[in-house]
């Protein structure tokens, strides 16, 4: 296991500098840069402003938690970062590519290659085995059958599920299901791992197990961004961003955050 200090956390000054120049492609080690990101929903005349201009910069290898009250726009932001949704206004740069200008097919490709998504409700295919679920992203990447199987097995072993590969989701516990989902998110070696309330449906012991998996991944250099309601879950990350009413309210190192919330 590597030393945590090997991956320095971006400082406020560095972030402000990257975000400042609109239209400029950020340098290579910035995985995610958003500038003035807006997302509005038109609810029959009434406009819901879910994100009202988010300036975000995340470096490769960072482990970030996003917190905030319900309705503050956490999921909306995650969906934009995960290329499942497109903003109404603003820029989104992922790995130096301007995602906010991409077509549907390009977005699908980015989702496949660059992004691993972990959901609160696992979202596994109920009739498929763990192995087959993990193989899915590789299917869409066009990886041939044998290699696909090998890599899916590897990913499952990485989350300690080597012995459960041929189980279907309903034959697994909640924690095991979420670990299958994590293996599925990792199998394409994405540049970012996104998790929207990954422990939302799990008890505290199982949540800790999942957090341990995330921790290990982060230690191995995986960029992780997760949304959570719970401060003690957020405290596992090395950097905590708080959203309020569709904008970033605070962005702190773990130490500053734990001090604030009194953990």
């Amino acid at each position: 296991m590597r030393n945590t200090d090997e991956y320095p956390i971006s400082t406020t000054e560095e972030r402000e500098a990257v975000v400042a120049t609109a239209g400029a492609a950020p340098e290579e080690d910035w995985v995610i840069v958003t500038r003035g990101l807006k997302r509005e929903y038109d609810m029959g005349g009434e406009v819901v402003r879910a994100l009202r201009g988010v300036d975000l910069a995340i470096r490769r290898n960072e482990y970030v938690a996003i917190m905030g009250p319900s309705g503050s726009g956490k999921s909306t932001l995650m969906n934009l970062i995960g290329c499942l949704d497109t903003p109404n206004d603003g820029e989104y740069w992922l790995n130096g590519q301007l995602v906010s200008a991409m077509s549907d097919d390009q977005l699908a490709r980015v989702r496949n290659k660059e992004i691993g998504f972990v959901f609160q409700t696992f979202n596994l295919l109920p009739r498929a085995t763990a192995l087959h679920n993990v193989e899915l992203p590789l299917v869409y990447a066009g990886v041939p059958g044998e290699e696909r199987r090998r890599r899916a097995e590897e990913a499952l072993e990485r989350v300690q599920l080597g012995a459960r590969m041929l189980h279907k989701p309903n034959e697994l516990s909640g924690g095991q299901r979420q670990r299958v989902a994590i293996a599925r998110a990792l199998v394409n070696r994405p540049s970012i791992l996104l998790a929207d309330e990954p422990t939302g449906n799990l008890d505290s012991t199982t949540s800790e197990e999942i957090m341990k998996v995330f921790e290990e991944l982060a230690d191995q250099g995986q960029t992780v961004i997760m949304v959570t309601h719970e401060p003690d879950i957020a405290a596992h990350a090395r950097r905590v961003i708080v959203l309020r009413d569709g904008v970033i309210a605070s962005d702190d190192k773990r130490s500053a955050f734990t001090q604030k919330v009194g953990l």
């Binding site: 097919d105 699908a108 496949n112 290659k113 998504f117 979202n123």
Partner: peptide
């Protein structure tokens, strides 16, 4: 519908 959403999230294109 949900399955379709999952597949798309994992990188399935409209054509897939």
């Amino acid at each position: 519908t949900r399955e379709i959403g999952v597949r798309k999230a994992l990188g399935a294109t409209n054509a897939d």
